[in-house]
Design a protein around this nucleic acid. Structure first.
Lengths: 198, 198
DNA sequence: CCCATTTTATGATTAAAATCATAAAATGCA
DNA sequence: TGCATTTTATGATTTTAATCATAAAATGGG
C-alpha cells in the first residue's frame, strides 16, 4: 500500500466502479497501477465453458494487477468490482517514476508480491493434491489471516458465498456445500443460519 | 539475478549439492537468499499420501525461496536438487542490507517475483478449470518461454519426464502419457523416440 | 414491498481421471 | 558391463467429484 500523499504527488486519479464493472480485461496490456480506496475487487479467469476461477479478492488499501505491469505482458486475468468500489489509478510511467524516486516503496511492493506468491503456492498445492474438504478449510484458514473476515462471538465469519469458495478452490458449488456440511459434522467449523464460522 | 561481484561484496558463500539433496524444508524459517550457479532445483510439496506437487523448477542464475524471507514466514515447500548443483548462499541480514544499499536490485527482485506470480496465475487457472490436454500444453508452452528448453530441427525439446509434467500440473503420470499421445495425434506436438517436441 | 435473481440445499446419475496391474524400454551407477 | 531403478506404456476397474435435476430460502434492486 502506497500512501495517499505520495500517490497524489505523482498525479493519481480516483475512479468509481459499480458492482460488476470491469476494471481491466485478460489479454489487455497494463497501463496503470491500481490501489483500492473502498469496495471489493476480484481477479478471475473464465474458461471456454464460462467456468470461473478467482485468482484473488482484494480490499481497501490493497493493490492488484502489478505483475504484468512490471513485465510488459498482457493481463492473465480480468479485474472486476464485486461491489461498488473506489480506486486510485496511476499511469504506469508515473508509477515507475515513483518507485525509482522512493526506494522504500520498492520494499513494500516486494513484500506485497511475496505475500501473494505465498498464497498462490499454498493454494496450488492444495488444489493439485488435496481433497475438497482439505482445500476448503485451507482457503478459510488463509482467509482468516489475509482476507478481512470479522470475528464475533461465534468465531470468524467467513463472508464468502459457497460459489466464491468453489471459484477460489476449483470446486463446484455443490461440492463446496457438501464439504462444508461434512466439516461442520466433524466440528471443524460452524454453520449458523447458513453462514459459516470458524 | 544479482551479479557475482555484488553478492561477494556482501559475503556470499558457495555451496554444492548432490542430486536429491535437500536445500531447505517446508516449515523451516528462512535464513538465507539462494541463487543458483549451476544445476537444477525444484521446489515442491508432498501431501499425506506422499504425492508430490512441484511449485517450480529453477536453473542457472535464478533465485528461489525469497517470498517467506521477506515475510518472516515458514517455507511453504521444500527445495531439492534435481541434479548436482552449486548455489550462492547469502545470510538474510546481508541480503537485506544489499537491497537497502542497492535500490536497482529491488527492481530486479520485483520483476523476478512478478514473473513467478504470473506463472502461478496462469497455472492455477489451468489446473482448476481445464482438462488434462490443455493443462499439459499450457505448461509446455510456458516452459518454452521460461524454462530452458533447447530448440533443434524437431522443434523445442521438452526436457521434462512425464512424471515431472504430472507433478507440475496436478495430473497422474498415466494421464500425462495419454494426454501427450492424444496431443501428438492432434498434431500439437511430436514424439520422437519417447522425447516430446513442440 | 414485490418479484427476479442468487444462494443454499439435496438426491440421482454420469463422466473423467485416478487407481491398479503389468511390462517393455531406457537409464545410470557400481 | 550388468543389473537395479526409472521411465514410458497400455488395458481394466474404481472412485470421486462433476453434472443434472429440482426446489426452498434469502437477497436485493426497481
Amino acid at each position: 500500500m502506497i500512501t495517499v500523499e505520495l500517490l497524489e504527488k505523482y498525479g493519481v486519479v480516483k475512479k468509481s466502479f459499480d458492482k460488476n464493472d470491469i476494471i481491466f480485461e485478460e489479454g489487455n496490456l497494463p497501463l496503470h497501477y491500481y490501489q483500492i480506496i473502498s469496495g471489493e475487487i476480484k481477479m478471475s479467469n473464465y474458461n471456454d465453458d464460462g467456468r470461473e476461477f478467482i485468482q484473488g479478492i482484494f480490499y481497501n488499501g490493497q493493490s492488484f494487477g502489478e505483475p504484468p505491469l512490471f513485465l510488459n505482458q498482457k493481463y492473465p486475468a480480468n479485474a472486476i468490482a464485486v461491489e461498488k468500489a473506489a480506486i486510485f489509478i496511476l499511469p504506469k510511467e508515473n508509477f515507475m517514476k515513483l518507485l525509482e524516486e522512493n526506494p522504500k516503496v520498492s520494499i513494500k511492493v516486494i513484500e506485497n508480491l511475496a505475500q501473494r506468491l505465498y498464497y498462490k503456492s499454498v493454494m496450488a498445492a492444495e488444489i493439485s493434491t488435496h481433497e475438497p474438504e482439505h482445500r476448503v478449510l485451507k482457503l478459510i484458514d488463509h482467509g482468516i489471516a489475509y482476507f478481512n473476515f470479522q470475528q464475533d462471538k461465534n468465531g470468524y465469519l467467513i463472508n464468502f458465498t459457497r460459489q466464491q469458495i468453489g471459484d477460489l478452490t476449483g470446486l463446484r458449488v455443490e461440492t463446496v456445500i457438501r464439504a462444508i456440511k461434512a466439516l461442520e459434522k466433524k466440528g471443524k467449523l460452524k454453520i449458523i443460519n447458513r453462514k459459516v464460522y470458524r
